[in-house]
Protein backbone atom coordinates (compact mmCIF):
# COMPACT_ATOMS: atom_id res chain seq x y z
CA UNK A 1 0.00 0.00 0.00
CA UNK A 2 1.04 3.57 0.36
CA UNK A 3 4.58 4.14 1.42
CA UNK A 4 4.30 6.03 4.65
CA UNK A 5 7.03 8.54 5.17
CA UNK A 6 10.43 8.92 3.70
CA UNK A 7 13.24 6.70 4.93
CA UNK A 8 16.75 7.93 4.29
CA UNK A 9 18.12 4.46 4.90
CA UNK A 10 16.35 2.94 1.94
CA UNK A 11 15.88 3.65 -1.74
CA UNK A 12 12.58 5.50 -1.84
CA UNK A 13 9.73 5.40 -4.30
CA UNK A 14 6.91 7.91 -4.69
CA UNK A 15 5.17 9.25 -1.57
CA UNK A 16 2.07 7.27 -2.23
CA UNK A 17 1.27 4.22 -4.31
CA UNK A 18 -1.76 1.96 -4.41
CA UNK A 19 -2.53 -1.64 -5.17
CA UNK A 20 -3.86 -2.30 -8.67
CA UNK A 21 -7.67 -2.53 -8.94
CA UNK A 22 -9.09 -5.16 -11.27
CA UNK A 23 -12.03 -4.66 -13.60
CA UNK A 24 -13.74 -7.93 -12.64
CA UNK A 25 -14.05 -6.69 -9.08
CA UNK A 26 -12.55 -9.86 -7.61
CA UNK A 27 -9.76 -9.50 -5.13
CA UNK A 28 -6.70 -11.56 -5.87
CA UNK A 29 -7.16 -13.26 -2.54
CA UNK A 30 -10.51 -14.71 -3.50
CA UNK A 31 -10.08 -17.14 -6.35
CA UNK A 32 -10.60 -20.58 -4.88
CA UNK A 33 -13.76 -19.74 -2.93
CA UNK A 34 -15.34 -17.39 -5.45
CA UNK A 35 -18.74 -19.10 -5.54
CA UNK A 36 -18.56 -20.81 -2.18
CA UNK A 37 -21.67 -20.91 -0.01
CA UNK A 38 -21.80 -21.65 3.71
CA UNK A 39 -22.29 -25.33 4.37
CA UNK A 40 -20.34 -26.46 1.30
CA UNK A 41 -17.34 -28.68 1.66
CA UNK A 42 -13.75 -27.54 1.74
CA UNK A 43 -12.14 -27.04 -1.63
CA UNK A 44 -9.12 -28.99 -2.79
CA UNK A 45 -8.57 -30.98 0.41
CA UNK A 46 -10.35 -32.65 3.29
CA UNK A 47 -11.21 -30.69 6.41
CA UNK A 48 -8.69 -32.65 8.45
CA UNK A 49 -5.86 -32.32 5.96
CA UNK A 50 -2.94 -30.01 6.35
CA UNK A 51 -0.96 -28.80 3.39
CA UNK A 52 1.94 -31.11 2.54
CA UNK A 53 5.14 -30.37 4.41
CA UNK A 54 7.19 -33.33 3.37
CA UNK A 55 6.43 -33.51 -0.32
CA UNK A 56 9.22 -33.77 -2.83
CA UNK A 57 8.99 -31.58 -5.90
CA UNK A 58 10.92 -32.93 -8.81
CA UNK A 59 10.51 -30.96 -12.01
CA UNK A 60 12.37 -27.90 -10.77
CA UNK A 61 16.01 -26.83 -10.91
CA UNK A 62 18.21 -27.79 -7.96
CA UNK A 63 17.70 -25.36 -5.12
CA UNK A 64 17.60 -26.22 -1.45
CA UNK A 65 14.12 -24.77 -1.18
CA UNK A 66 12.27 -27.01 -3.55
CA UNK A 67 14.04 -30.18 -4.48
CA UNK A 68 14.65 -31.64 -1.07
CA UNK A 69 12.17 -32.26 1.69
CA UNK A 70 10.45 -29.01 2.35
CA UNK A 71 11.29 -29.03 6.01
CA UNK A 72 15.02 -28.60 5.76
CA UNK A 73 17.41 -27.96 8.58
CA UNK A 74 20.85 -26.41 8.73
CA UNK A 75 20.77 -24.48 5.47
CA UNK A 76 22.08 -21.21 6.95
CA UNK A 77 25.75 -22.04 7.35
CA UNK A 78 26.72 -19.39 9.87
CA UNK A 79 23.78 -19.95 12.20
CA UNK A 80 23.96 -22.40 15.09
CA UNK A 81 20.75 -23.91 13.87
CA UNK A 82 18.36 -23.15 11.06
CA UNK A 83 15.31 -24.53 9.33
CA UNK A 84 13.23 -23.79 6.30
CA UNK A 85 9.64 -24.89 6.07
CA UNK A 86 7.30 -24.73 3.13
CA UNK A 87 3.64 -25.68 3.11
CA UNK A 88 2.44 -24.86 -0.41
CA UNK A 89 2.46 -21.06 -0.44
CA UNK A 90 3.63 -20.47 3.10
CA UNK A 91 7.42 -20.22 3.17
CA UNK A 92 9.29 -19.50 6.38
CA UNK A 93 13.02 -19.45 7.14
CA UNK A 94 14.33 -19.51 10.69
CA UNK A 95 17.79 -19.18 12.22
CA UNK A 96 18.99 -19.63 15.78
CA UNK A 97 22.08 -17.83 17.08
CA UNK A 98 23.32 -18.57 20.54
CA UNK A 99 23.24 -19.17 23.33
CA UNK A 100 25.29 -15.99 23.49
CA UNK A 101 26.08 -13.50 26.21
CA UNK A 102 23.20 -11.28 27.18
CA UNK A 103 23.83 -7.63 26.35
CA UNK A 104 21.90 -6.28 29.29
CA UNK A 105 24.04 -5.68 32.35
CA UNK A 106 21.58 -7.04 34.89
CA UNK A 107 22.05 -10.62 36.06
CA UNK A 108 19.53 -13.21 35.02
CA UNK A 109 19.29 -16.56 36.70
CA UNK A 110 17.76 -18.14 33.63
CA UNK A 111 18.42 -17.60 29.95
CA UNK A 112 16.22 -15.56 27.71
CA UNK A 113 14.60 -16.49 24.43
CA UNK A 114 14.41 -13.58 22.05
CA UNK A 115 12.27 -13.95 18.93
CA UNK A 116 12.33 -11.50 16.03
CA UNK A 117 9.96 -11.93 13.12
CA UNK A 118 10.31 -10.19 9.81
CA UNK A 119 7.94 -10.32 6.89
CA UNK A 120 9.46 -9.70 3.48
CA UNK A 121 7.72 -6.82 1.64
CA UNK A 122 6.45 -9.26 -0.99
CA UNK A 123 5.17 -11.86 1.48
CA UNK A 124 1.50 -10.95 1.26
CA UNK A 125 -0.89 -9.80 -1.47
CA UNK A 126 -0.74 -6.24 -0.16
CA UNK A 127 2.85 -5.04 -0.11
CA UNK A 128 4.24 -4.73 3.40
CA UNK A 129 6.11 -1.51 3.93
CA UNK A 130 9.49 -2.54 5.35
CA UNK A 131 8.97 -1.00 8.75
CA UNK A 132 8.58 -3.04 11.90
CA UNK A 133 4.92 -2.98 12.80
CA UNK A 134 2.74 -4.36 15.52
CA UNK A 135 2.02 -7.58 13.66
CA UNK A 136 5.70 -8.60 13.68
CA UNK A 137 5.75 -8.22 17.43
CA UNK A 138 2.55 -10.08 18.17
CA UNK A 139 3.63 -12.96 15.93
CA UNK A 140 7.02 -13.01 17.63
CA UNK A 141 5.32 -13.04 21.00
CA UNK A 142 3.16 -16.04 20.10
CA UNK A 143 6.19 -18.00 18.89
CA UNK A 144 8.11 -17.09 22.02
CA UNK A 145 5.23 -18.16 24.24
CA UNK A 146 5.01 -21.49 22.44
CA UNK A 147 8.74 -22.18 22.75
CA UNK A 148 9.75 -20.79 26.13
CA UNK A 149 8.46 -23.65 28.25
CA UNK A 150 10.17 -26.25 26.02
CA UNK A 151 13.73 -24.92 26.36
CA UNK A 152 15.90 -25.67 29.38
CA UNK A 153 16.56 -21.99 30.01
CA UNK A 154 17.55 -22.76 33.60
CA UNK A 155 20.76 -24.31 32.24
CA UNK A 156 21.76 -21.10 30.49
CA UNK A 157 22.05 -18.26 33.01
CA UNK A 158 23.13 -14.81 31.77
CA UNK A 159 22.66 -15.83 28.16
CA UNK A 160 20.26 -15.13 25.37
CA UNK A 161 19.16 -17.32 22.49
CA UNK A 162 18.26 -15.30 19.40
CA UNK A 163 15.65 -16.76 17.10
CA UNK A 164 15.21 -14.90 13.84
CA UNK A 165 12.28 -15.73 11.61
CA UNK A 166 11.85 -14.41 8.08
CA UNK A 167 8.50 -14.99 6.46
CA UNK A 168 9.15 -15.21 2.73
CA UNK A 169 5.56 -15.84 1.78
CA UNK A 170 2.50 -15.95 3.99
CA UNK A 171 -0.75 -17.69 3.11
CA UNK A 172 -2.93 -17.45 6.18
CA UNK A 173 -1.35 -15.79 9.18
CA UNK A 174 -2.31 -18.44 11.76
CA UNK A 175 -0.88 -21.32 9.76
CA UNK A 176 2.16 -19.16 9.07
CA UNK A 177 2.70 -18.73 12.83
CA UNK A 178 2.30 -22.48 13.25
CA UNK A 179 4.87 -23.16 10.52
CA UNK A 180 7.27 -20.61 12.04
CA UNK A 181 6.91 -22.26 15.46
CA UNK A 182 7.77 -25.67 14.01
CA UNK A 183 10.74 -24.17 12.14
CA UNK A 184 11.96 -22.36 15.26
CA UNK A 185 11.73 -25.43 17.46
CA UNK A 186 13.48 -27.57 14.85
CA UNK A 187 16.23 -24.93 14.57
CA UNK A 188 16.68 -24.96 18.34
CA UNK A 189 17.09 -28.72 18.27
CA UNK A 190 19.51 -28.39 15.36
CA UNK A 191 21.51 -25.84 17.35
CA UNK A 192 21.95 -28.45 20.07
CA UNK A 193 20.13 -26.47 22.72
CA UNK A 194 18.71 -28.61 25.48
CA UNK A 195 14.97 -28.92 25.25
CA UNK A 196 12.25 -30.98 26.85
CA UNK A 197 10.73 -31.77 23.47
CA UNK A 198 10.02 -30.45 20.02
CA UNK A 199 7.26 -27.89 19.94
CA UNK A 200 4.83 -28.50 17.11
CA UNK A 201 2.03 -26.18 16.21
CA UNK A 202 -1.10 -26.44 14.11
CA UNK A 203 -4.03 -24.17 13.43
CA UNK A 204 -7.68 -24.93 12.83
CA UNK A 205 -10.42 -22.74 11.43
CA UNK A 206 -14.04 -23.29 12.33
CA UNK A 207 -16.12 -22.87 9.19
CA UNK A 208 -19.78 -23.63 9.77
CA UNK A 209 -19.87 -27.02 11.48
CA UNK A 210 -16.49 -28.14 10.24
CA UNK A 211 -13.01 -27.61 11.52
CA UNK A 212 -10.54 -27.00 8.69
CA UNK A 213 -6.98 -27.60 9.74
CA UNK A 214 -4.08 -25.47 8.49
CA UNK A 215 -6.31 -22.87 6.81
CA UNK A 216 -4.96 -20.71 4.02
CA UNK A 217 -5.68 -17.00 3.60
CA UNK A 218 -9.01 -17.45 1.86
CA UNK A 219 -10.24 -20.03 4.34
CA UNK A 220 -9.26 -17.74 7.20
CA UNK A 221 -11.65 -15.16 5.85
CA UNK A 222 -14.55 -17.64 5.81
CA UNK A 223 -13.94 -18.81 9.35
CA UNK A 224 -16.00 -17.77 12.34
CA UNK A 225 -13.09 -18.47 14.64
CA UNK A 226 -9.55 -19.77 14.49
CA UNK A 227 -7.60 -21.69 17.05
CA UNK A 228 -3.84 -21.96 17.11
CA UNK A 229 -2.37 -24.65 19.28
CA UNK A 230 1.25 -25.41 20.13
CA UNK A 231 2.19 -28.57 21.93
CA UNK A 232 5.00 -31.01 22.69
CA UNK A 233 3.64 -34.28 21.29
CA UNK A 234 6.48 -36.26 22.87
CA UNK A 235 5.31 -35.24 26.34
CA UNK A 236 1.65 -34.79 25.53
CA UNK A 237 1.52 -31.26 26.91
CA UNK A 238 0.36 -28.00 25.42
CA UNK A 239 2.58 -24.94 25.47
CA UNK A 240 0.39 -22.26 23.95
CA UNK A 241 -3.18 -21.87 22.79
CA UNK A 242 -4.48 -18.81 21.02
CA UNK A 243 -7.97 -18.35 19.80
CA UNK A 244 -9.55 -15.56 17.82
CA UNK A 245 -13.14 -15.06 16.76
CA UNK A 246 -16.29 -16.42 18.27
CA UNK A 247 -16.43 -20.15 18.95
CA UNK A 248 -18.83 -22.31 20.95
CA UNK A 249 -16.94 -24.08 23.71
CA UNK A 250 -17.54 -27.51 22.19
CA UNK A 251 -16.09 -26.36 18.84
CA UNK A 252 -13.03 -24.88 20.53
CA UNK A 253 -12.32 -28.17 22.29
CA UNK A 254 -12.99 -30.12 19.12
CA UNK A 255 -10.49 -28.02 17.14
CA UNK A 256 -7.99 -28.33 19.94
CA UNK A 257 -8.33 -32.08 19.81
CA UNK A 258 -7.97 -32.18 16.01
CA UNK A 259 -4.96 -29.85 16.05
CA UNK A 260 -3.25 -31.98 18.64
CA UNK A 261 -3.81 -35.16 16.63
CA UNK A 262 -2.31 -33.51 13.55
CA UNK A 263 0.64 -32.23 15.58
CA UNK A 264 1.68 -35.82 16.20
CA UNK A 265 2.06 -36.30 12.42
CA UNK A 266 4.01 -33.07 12.01
CA UNK A 267 6.21 -34.10 14.93
CA UNK A 268 7.23 -37.16 12.97
CA UNK A 269 8.14 -35.06 9.94
CA UNK A 270 10.20 -32.66 12.06
CA UNK A 271 11.97 -35.53 13.83
CA UNK A 272 12.65 -37.17 10.48
CA UNK A 273 14.10 -33.94 9.06
CA UNK A 274 16.44 -33.66 12.05
CA UNK A 275 17.34 -37.32 11.83
CA UNK A 276 18.24 -37.15 8.12
CA UNK A 277 20.75 -34.38 8.72
Amino acid sequence: MAQSGFDRRRVNGPNESLQPVYDDGIKESNVLYKAWKPGEARRKRQAKDIRPICARHTATPPTPFVTQTVLKTGFIKQANGSAYIETEHTKVACAVYGPRQSKSSSYHEIGRLSVEVKFTPFSSLVRRVPIRDAEDRSVANLIQQALTSSVRLDLLPKSVIDIFVTVIECDGIESCIAAATVAASTSLAKAGIEMLGLVISCSGAVVGDDVWLDPNEEETQLASGILLCACMPALGVMTNVWQTGCLPLAKAFQSLQLCQERCIDIHQIAAQALHED
Binding site: G13, Q78, K118
Partner: peptide, 22 residues
Protein backbone atom coordinates in the same frame (compact mmCIF):
# COMPACT_ATOMS: atom_id res chain seq x y z
CA UNK B 1 7.39 5.14 -13.74
CA UNK B 2 9.41 4.20 -10.69
CA UNK B 3 11.83 1.38 -10.06
CA UNK B 4 12.63 1.01 -6.37
CA UNK B 5 15.30 -1.59 -5.63
CA UNK B 6 16.20 -2.36 -2.01
CA UNK B 7 18.09 -5.13 -0.30
CA UNK B 8 17.65 -6.28 3.25
CA UNK B 9 20.30 -8.11 5.25
CA UNK B 10 18.20 -9.47 8.12
CA UNK B 11 19.71 -10.73 11.35
CA UNK B 12 18.78 -14.21 10.16
CA UNK B 13 21.46 -14.37 7.47
CA UNK B 14 24.61 -14.09 9.56
CA UNK B 15 25.80 -13.63 13.14
CA UNK B 16 27.12 -10.11 12.58
CA UNK B 17 23.81 -8.66 11.43
CA UNK B 18 21.49 -7.03 13.93
CA UNK B 19 17.72 -6.81 13.83
CA UNK B 20 16.21 -3.38 13.24
CA UNK B 21 16.58 -0.75 10.54
CA UNK B 22 18.94 -1.39 7.60
Amino acid sequence: GFLVPNIDLPALCGPRFKPGPP
